[in-house]
């Protein structure tokens, strides 16, 4: 069970479907590890169900957004809409069964998994320094403008101190790391804003692999910044 979760407002927006895709990806990866957030999300989805069932109905099959006064007119347009719908269902090939459901019960759940060419360990990692490697997913998956990467930090290694120009979301996939604010293990969801300086250090026992979602490039602030920056820059 993870100890670090998306906050209530993030889950609210996730359930509402208004969270950005890349953020939703991070939340969704966390959910694979976290029963607590799964349960909270079921409740939030029920909120959506209630709001939907309690909403004032609009007229279907017509282009106005009001219910016509007379119920026979209303029914007529419902009839029309239903006819169109059934015609469409009849004319389209049934969609091929999506292969979902089977992977759901796996303990290690990562919606990115099926978009990766291999297991995490066998990815074509780009070495950034001797201790840090990355695998850039930004141009692989369609997630809007956010920078999406997997990062691998060698056991015990330290990432140079840096701040972010935007918000950084991290979900630990394997191993763990610590920074000034805490210790994080597989499944933990960590949100950092631009005001935050940190220098994560991987835990000693194994390499740490994280999913990182960044809505703007990160900026190194330590003395090594000048020469490290070009190497580690999250170039487009």
């Amino acid at each position: 069970m993870s100890a670090h979760h998306p906050d209530d407002l993030t889950l609210l927006e996730y359930s509402a479907g208004s969270l950005g895709l890349a953020q939703a990806l991070a939340v969704s990866v966390h959910l694979g590890y976290c029963l607590q957030c799964q349960s909270q999300l079921r409740k939030l989805n029920a909120l959506g169900g209630v709001l939907l069932s309690e909403t004032r109905p609009a007229s279907v099959g017509a282009n106005d957004d009001q219910i016509p006064e007379r119920s026979d007119v209303q029914n007529e347009s419902l009839d029309k809409g239903f006819e169109q719908l059934m015609a469409r269902i009849g004319s389209e090939e049934p969609r091929a069964e999506a292969p979902t459901g089977t992977s759901v019960s796996k303990r290690y759940h990562n919606p990115l998994e099926r978009y990766l060419p291999s297991s995490l360990d066998e990815l074509d990692w780009q070495q950034q320094t001797r201790e840090i490697a990355k695998y850039d997913l930004t141009n692989v998956v369609d997630m809007g403008s956010a920078r999406i990467t997997l990062q691998r930090i060698k056991a015990g290694a330290k990432v140079p101190v840096h701040t972010h120009r935007g918000n950084e979301l991290t979900v630990v996939l394997k191993g763990g790391f610590s920074d000034e604010l805490g210790v994080y293990h597989a499944g933990d969801y960590i949100a950092r804003d631009p005001s935050h300086h940190h220098s994560p250090t991987a835990l000693q026992n194994e390499d740490c692999i994280c999913l990182t979602v960044l809505d703007a490039p990160m900026r190194f602030t330590g003395p090594l910044m000048r020469w490290l920056n070009p190497l580690l820059a999250w170039k487009a």
């Binding site: 969704s28 799964q38 141009n139």
Partner: peptide, 19 residues
């Protein structure tokens, strides 16, 4: 808003409650 990315992660998968 489709980009030129190679793959599209399925919306349903992104919004699925796993267990």
């Amino acid at each position: 808003g489709r980009t030129k990315a190679e793959m599209t992660v399925d919306t349903e998968e992104l919004w699925q409650i796993p267990t």
